[in-house]
């Protein structure tokens, strides 16, 4: 292997792992056990896992069709749409949260309608956490799936059509299975992004233990008074996410 590649690669790895090492070094190992046993930690962790998973499911439901439209559809202004999809990537998450409040909040056009029809107000609910996380994570899914779709020869879809498959059947039985690795990769990215989401969540969903306080929020607030607790929480979040992703990789992406 040429050193021009291996040296920067090693540097990149160090760059990524050094902050983690910092956390590990400063972690209060002696009191770790009792800190982890705190019910608020488990509560925040459970909420984080549940909301990130729901947000990923939501993104799959809406994001895969959107990726298909971008990759295959004959929509006018596709380039513009594609650029707009990446907006949540560029937008500071807090701004995204404010934007969600302005539209889906009690006084927002959509939020007010929802409230008048159903009496349900989205902000400060667990559902709001899912919405905020999905908003921020959706581009990751759409971009991965669109990239995967572009690598599939559209003639496979033609072959399916000549065999009598409707467009929906072509999509579910041919296109989707062929891009499965891309969908899994996108979903993993999406889930990881949702799990770490902070700005949009605290702005749109607020912070209430057990309902909207996810791990990143708990970490942020712990930093105010108890940096050691913040380190513990960060490590828990890190360990769980790395564990889940490594497990998934072994099961799903191993073949690719």
């Amino acid at each position: 292997m040429p050193w021009v590649l291996t040296v920067p690669a090693a540097l990149a790895l160090v760059f990524l792992l050094l902050p983690l090492a910092g956390l590990l070094v400063r972690a209060p190992w002696s009191t770790m056990g009792e800190r982890l046993a705190e019910p608020r930690v488990l509560e925040a962790l459970r909420l984080s896992l549940v909301t990130a998973t729901l947000a990923t499911a939501f993104c799959l439901l809406l994001g895969v069709p959107l990726a298909w439209v971008l990759a295959r559809g004959d929509v006018p202004g596709r380039r513009l749409v594609r650029a707009l999809v990446t907006v949540p990537l560029v937008l500071p998450p807090v701004v995204g949260g404010v934007a969600l409040l302005l539209v889906l909040g009690r006084n927002g056009p959509v939020g007010r309608l929802l409230y008048e029809v159903s009496g349900f107000s989205l902000p400060f609910t667990t559902a709001a956490v899912v919405v905020a996380e999905a908003f921020v994570a959706l581009p990751f899914l759409v971009i991965s799936v669109e990239g995967a779709l572009k690598t599939v020869d559209p003639r496979f879809e033609e072959a399916a059509a000549t065999l009598g498959a409707s467009r929906l059947r072509v999509f579910t039985r041919v296109t989707l299975p062929m891009v499965a690795p891309g969908v899994v990769a996108g979903a993993v990215l999406c889930w990881a992004r949702a799990l770490g989401e902070f700005g949009a969540t605290i702005t749109f969903a607020g912070n209430f233990p057990g309902r909207t306080q996810t791990m990143p929020l708990a970490v942020y607030l712990a930093l105010e008074t108890d940096p050691e607790a913040a380190i513990v929480l960060s490590l828990v979040l890190l360990a769980v996410s790395v564990g889940v992703l490594a497990g998934l990789r072994g099961r799903w992406a191993g073949a690719s």
Partner: peptide, 15 residues
Amino acid sequence: TPVTYEQDVKATLTK
């Protein structure tokens, strides 16, 4: 019982 415990006073006021 509030609906949210905000991370700082500005965020609270924004709500």
